[in-house]
Structure formats: structure tokens, C-alpha cells
Design a protein around this nucleic acid. Sequence first.
DNA 1: CGCAAAAGTGACTTATAAGTAACAATAGTA
DNA 2: TACTATTGTTACTTATAAGTCACTTTTGCG
Lengths: 225, 225
Amino acid sequence: MGRWANAVPSRAEQSDTKRKAIIREAARVFNRRGSHGTTLDDVAERLGVTKAALYRYVNNKNDLLFACHEEAMEIANEALEAGEREGRTGIEKIQIGMTGYLRVMISDLGVPVLLLEENALAGEDATQIRALRDAFEKRLRRLVEAGIADGSIVPTNPKLAVFMLLGAVHWVTKWYSPDGPWTAEEAASALIELATRGFAANPSPTLNSHLHLPSNSRAKRQKEP
Amino acid sequence: MGRWANAVPSRAEQSDTKRKAIIREAARVFNRRGSHGTTLDDVAERLGVTKAALYRYVNNKNDLLFACHEEAMEIANEALEAGEREGRTGIEKIQIGMTGYLRVMISDLGVPVLLLEENALAGEDATQIRALRDAFEKRLRRLVEAGIADGSIVPTNPKLAVFMLLGAVHWVTKWYSPDGPWTAEEAASALIELATRGFAANPSPTLNSHLHLPSNSRAKRQKEP
DNA sequence: CGCAAAAGTGACTTATAAGTAACAATAGTA
DNA sequence: TACTATTGTTACTTATAAGTCACTTTTGCG
């Protein structure tokens, strides 16, 4: 054990940190350009190293892609657990869970991944990730069913509702930018509010998030802080 | 002019038909596997020809990708025109337009494309498609603004509403299959109903599409025709 | 300091997929 | 039927990106 055990990171810890940085950065690029459209040289360049250096931390490209998906699924499941713990009705659980998921994805990872491209992952890894993703979707569907049962969600086809929600959520990779006008928090909660209102049993007559204010009043707001 | 002018296709017409078939098939595969993840050998194989044959109809892969996007945008704009013509309120125009778009995309093309991957298109083509897509999104935003003005849509951020809707729509490539339980028509209208309800000023207390019936009653329905 | 282990590099091999070109089959037309 | 356009194929070249390897550089430690 080192003398300042928790202060100075050990060799293994440093290595682990770097591996995570690689996964994070790779996930970003994979998301925007697709995994086939991204070279390991690209990823390496963004990290200021050469491709060969990456191979100290991952076995190959497929392994890296697998790690990205794995991490995304981990975040998703943790978020959903929080939602299930804190929400009172089915729809609340979904809202809390998905808002949390989206917020973390946008800000930390810059990304929701979840098998955007078919056939990108090869072999054993693919089936494993697909199983995780299917389990996640099933869990979401259960929450929709629970919401219908407890009267917070309008009678609807749970599969379709989940597909609608996931589409709205995953699409953020295409338009969200940290340099844009919205914080991760704002974008996440406003988007989830809008999407879940689609199957809410009693949709509020107005939207809560200030993001939904008309754009001229938003502009004013910014000029008079 | 041939003798049965409209009955027997001329050489040029045949060639045109084949080019369209190539675009159609390519769009399908590009959508599922990404453009970088798809080889021209793949596309050729699905059409029962060899790669070299494709080069009689398209100049190169980029050209083919461009054509796919171009066609998708054409369908999108036609659908939106129909919506603007037939719908009475802002939300109705969006619903009619997007349902039509989605239905055609799913059944005919198997696909909404719309620049799913960044950097997939190179050079001049990329800026041209991006311009078309931006114009389409702006047009949709205008309809949202019109809907807010005419009271059919709840006050909301038009950009966000459009992003939500487009996410839900484009995601169908990930889950829709013609072999599944839903026709293109059913899936399109049910999905659009659900998504647009998210920003409707007066969301109906129940959903219309029979797709939204609970699954056990659907199962019954199928067993007792 | 000096040195061993870890991290990183540059120069490769190898695999794959885009694109080409010479040749073969096919189908409308004199 | 024979002739010529067009369509298609087989067998290539070429470009790119994955993955490897022998090596230098860096860094924590006695």
C-alpha cells in the first residue's frame, strides 16, 4: 500500500482511469460517426496518443465497442433503479429514471449508444449486449404496464410506447451539443417531459420546464439576468 | 417512340427502374448497418448481381448515398405538403404529414435515412443534403409554431418538439419489421398519434389506434377473426 | 542517481472494400 | 440470322484501416 493510499493513485488505478477515458471518447465518436465510420486512429488522435497505445488498454476494436455498450447499459440500469425507488406511479418512475439516464449520458459520456448499428458487434459480445438491451427494454415495458394499471398512463401498447420514448431519447446524439443553449439537465428533463406526456393518463395542460417558454421570452430572460 | 409506347418500357426507362431499385435496396441496408458498415458487395448480392454491375448506374458509393438521402427528402417534403393541404390545425398538418411520410418510408423504402451518420457523405453532396434536411426541420418547426398560435399545440419549444418527434420517427428503423405483427400503416399512425400527443393542447383521454388495445385483447382478436 | 517495469511510438503486415478494365453474355434491330 | 448496343462478370489494382512488433521514452522506487 502506498503511504497516502487514497491520495496518490496506484499504477493500476491510473491504468483503469485511462481505459475509461478511452471508452468515453470512443463512445462519443462512435455515436456521431458510427462504429464503422470511426477509425482507431481517430480515437487515438482525440486523446493525443497513437493508435498502438490504445492496444495496451483494449484487446481490439470490437472489445472497445463492447465496453462502450456495457457502460451505457450500466448507466441505464442504475438510472432505472433510481426511478423505481423514487417514483410513486408508473409514469413517475419512467420520468425519473429516463431523465437521470439521459442527463448522465449527455453530460458524462456525451452519448447514448445501445446498439445503434446492426452487426457492428461481432460474435459472443453481440449476443451479450443484445440480451442486456432487451432486458432493459422489457423493464421499461413493465413500468409502462404498471403505469396503465395504476392509472398514471393511458391504455396503450407498451412496446410502442417504449419504442417512441427510446427513439426520442437516443436521437439526442444527433442534435445535442454542450456548446448549444441548453444544459444537459435542461435538455434531459424537457425532452422526457415532452415525450412521456404522449402516454400520460392526465397530461398537464401546460409544460413545466422553462425550456418550453416561447423563444422571445427566453431571449429576454437572458438579457435581463 | 415504340409501338406500344406506354406498355413496353424503353431502354432508358428500364435503366431508370434498375437505378431506383439499387437506391431502394441500398437505403435499406445503409439504414440498418450504417453506410460505412455496408459494402457495395452486400448491396449487389441482395440484388442478385455483382458489384461491378452497380457502377453502370451510380458513379460511386458516395453518389449512391446521396441519392438515398435525396429520395428520402423528396418523400418527406411531399408528405408534408399533403399534410399542409389537408390538415386544418397545426397539429393536424403535422400528424397527417408525418404519418404519410412514415408509412411510405416503412413500406416502400424500408427506411427513413436523413443523415443518420455524420461525415458519411463527402464534399459538396454533404452540404446539399444538410441544407435539404435543415429546410425540412424548419418547415416542421413552422408547423409547430402555427399549432401553438392556433391553439392546437401546447406552448412549447418548437425545436425540442421537432427533435422529439423526429427521434421517435427515425427510430423505427431499429425495431420495425414487415414480418412483425404490425402493418406499415398501423405502425405509422399509432406511433405518430402517440408522439404528437406529447405536445397536443388537448390530448385525447384515450388513444384511437387499435394497436393501443391491451395485448391480450389483441391476441383474442387474432384468434377470432 | 540508476534501473526495471510500464507506457508510448514508428514502421511494418494483413485484411477488406472501393473502384477499374478487359472480356462475355444478352437483347433489341436491320 | 447477323450485328451492335447494353448489361453484366471475372479478375485485377489501390486505398484504407485493423492489428503487430521491435524499439524508445517515461516514471515510480531502492
